[in-house]
Design a protein around this nucleic acid. Structure first.
Lengths: 289, 289
DNA sequence: CCAGATATGAAATGTTTATTCCGTAAGCGG
DNA sequence: CCGCTTACGGAATAAACATTTCATATCTGG
């Protein structure tokens, strides 16, 4: 007997066999199809009561569709629910136990894998980033006198891009790069009307943390882009974007962070335009970055 | 002690008390904040293993935040996940419908749009990049004595990332950055056994073109990442990757290029590993030198 | 460096939860 | 209406699980 191991398959099978089920099993089928996340979360006892059948019937139902027990079937519902919110890395972890597929080795496979992972990360970024945070961040950037951007090592590329984009919007944007060993000197430029954008992922660069502390001391506002709610950057920041980057093996990507900073820059461009919109007409062309 | 009974409250409390927690409890806090749906679904034993703490610590953690047990706290996560799923599905639908809409203006819309455009670009990248080119490029990189990376202005971020990644694979990788106005001097380093990776998109930076010409003159091999088959970079290169970047209004993205260079770097890492494996298999048990 | 306090982790414990069992009831062909 | 088969449900059982316990390790202030 073929046992469906994904939600939509199972749904189809239940529907198609509905007619031939016994009265009690039909009752279960109806409940199961209509209360997906009750099945995913609740215990057999609870479900049995809500569906108005004895617990044993639930096990019989699962058996009828080829599962070894009700919990076995329950897994299908849980996975379905998780897949709607889990990111690529977490999903990969989920499936690693089930079928430990060998890591991709061919360049083409690696590109496919990376591309898939990044797609997932981008979708999650869009879904999980709050409009409120984005608006606040844009507002903060718009009001900044100077914008200092820091991101070292892996995050340096994102930092350079953001600086580039901000410069193209005629912002006074400065990249803290430690050139000539002058981290300290660069940090000391920051004043209370300035804004710091700090980008850092575990393991957090010492210099980035030092900057956020300095910025916090002088009262500058801060926007953090990092990988955890409890990142050391989070505590100092006014706005903290938590970005779950795609990961293939030990290699973490940057696409989501890049997408985020691009969106911030473009939003800032529109923000500028809206300010001017008071007297001029809407939809003035925006120069590219 | 007030016990949070919704997710965002709990999240806030955990973050604010993070500093005063013990080392182990911090470990749990980080896991709990960053793996919401693992907490919602997995058993204490599984979570304990993944967070690398003993099960009892999880109960202690829940107690520390006023819950009677870990399951008590778990309920908060489960409720959150259920609510979130509903939102997520809605947003996913919005995301799809967004496609043919007038220019977005709100930061949230811009992020959605950028994310969507990048997803498309990544999928196209994966579909259109030939395995053969990838293999050749990896081979060329593997054989390089020195690798010079150039990408200016918009492409600088991609170039910095590639340089970073190559350095981490112990390659002799150098970023041509024109620091101190020394473009010319940096170019003159290139020798016939070296490889140049040039990243440039229209309008092509003069310095990048100059480098490719120099490289070609001394007989160095070249890998180009650019936006057109007829790009000035294409003619000088041994391998030319044509990347169609996402574009929102006048703003072009970088995600696809970044994904490509990451894939190249990771492929190179696997290439190295295979080499070592072959060597060690073949290695004859010879003593002395 | 020591004593007291606190944090930690392995194993024991007690509870919840899934599953099985079996006597009974309902359906069905003769 | 009877005997046979299939479905059913409650109670018993087994498995999984969360939680507690306690001996040990680690910190902290004097």
């Amino acid at each position: 007997m073929s046992t469906p191991n994904n939600y939509s398959e199972l749904q189809d099978v239940i529907r198609s066999r509905y007619g031939e089920l016994s009265k009690r099993l039909q009752q279960v089928a109806a409940y199961v199809l209509d209360n997906t996340n009750s099945v995913a979360f609740d215990t057999v006892a609870v479900i049995a009561e809500q569906a108005d059948v004895p617990p044993s019937t639930l096990i019989r139902f699962a058996n009828a569709f080829g599962y070894s027990g009700f919990n076995d079937m329950k897994q299908v519902f849980r996975r379905h629910l998780m897949e709607e919110t889990a990111n690529y890395t977490e999903r990969a972890k989920m499936f690693r136990d089930l079928e430990d597929q060998p890591s991709p080795e061919q360049p083409e496979e690696i590109l496919n894998e990376f591309s898939r992972a990044n797609v997932q990360a981008l979708q999650q970024l869009a879904a999980q980033t709050s409009a409120e945070d984005l608006n606040k961040a844009v507002q903060i950037l718009a009001e900044a006198e100077n914008i200092y951007v820091i991101g070292l090592r892996r995050s340096f590329s994102v930092a350079t891009y953001l600086t580039y984009a901000l410069r193209h919007l005629n912002r006074r944007a400065f990249l803290i790069d430690g050139l000539g060993g002058m981290f300290q000197e660069q940090l000391e430029l920051i004043g209370p009307k300035d804004v710091v954008v700090a980008i850092s992922f575990s393991p957090y660069a010492r210099e980035t943390l030092a900057l956020t502390e300095t910025a916090s001391r002088v009262g500058a506002r801060q926007i953090a882009i990092t990988d955890s709610q409890v990142s050391p950057l989070a505590s100092f920041s006014d706005i903290c974007f938590v970005v779950k980057e795609a990961q293939v093996d030990a290699f973490r990507s940057q696409s989501a962070s890049l997408c985020l900073v691009q969106s911030l820059a473009v939003s800032l461009a529109y923000h500028d335009k809206d300010d001017k919109k008071d007297n001029s007409d809407k939809k003035a062309p925006v120069s590219g970055a």
